[in-house]
Amino acid sequence: MPSPGVHHVEMHLLLEGVFQVYGHDFRDYAEASLHRRLSKWLTESRFSTFSQAQGAVLRDPAVFHSLLTGLTVNVTEMFRDPLAFKTIREQVVPHLRTYPSLKVWVAGCASGEEAYSMAILLEEEGFKDRYRIYATDVDPEVLEQAKAGIYPLKELQRFTQNYQKAGGRAAFSDYYSARFDRAMLEPRLRERMVFATHNLAVDAGFGEMHLALCRNVLIYFKPVLKQRVLSLLDTSITPGGFLCLGLKEGLETTEWQRSYEEVVARTRIYRKRYA
């Protein structure tokens, strides 16, 4: 077994190559998780070391895409952390109602569960055609899954429980149809949603958002990248707008602490102050 240091050198070389060839920048991702994901991809690939994989990754886009999917895999649920969605419904929605039309950004939407959760919530709160949800992710393949809105049926039980705890107003079964072992979400939920590839590490923002959700994304970044992404989110959120982070991600101890106020303690849902 080579010394653990060699793996890390190989990993850095591979990530540097990926950045230079494809423009995807994983160099400022927190390494422990990144290393686990890369190692998992490696054991499932035909290569035995990162060095051996490097040539194929850099020359063959198909190999790169399998790596990209392995690196960006995000597991989420509909209405994950139901209390957060309950807080949005009860404390944030009353403010959102004051806008004639509403823009919501789900940054790092992965396979779309959170974006659909927001669509259901806004539909139930009567926003009808007065909102648009921008669901973005770095991985185009995972966005295709998000667009399809098809999930394994066995997940639906958990989604349903979450939905109920999150203060859902209908029967969750109204929102999907089951076929074999899959559940397809109602296509109408997609009508107000825009799916786009967007790389938080390198791309600019796109327009003034009234609510941005970026949950359990920052935990994967090193402080320098976290800083960049928070800055991007901040410039994208209109004064009086809202930012929703994961339960273990806070603005406390960041430079944005003073420009935001947490809506309910420890929910990690913040309102941007008017200058």
Partner: peptide, 21 residues
């Protein structure tokens, strides 16, 4: 480790969290 998060250690000794499977 917080509920529903993995607890990891970075090579510089700092802690990190993930929601990996």
């Amino acid at each position: 480790a917080p509920a529903n998060y993995h607890l990891l250690v970075e090579t510089d000794g700092r802690l990190s969290l993930s929601v990996d499977p």
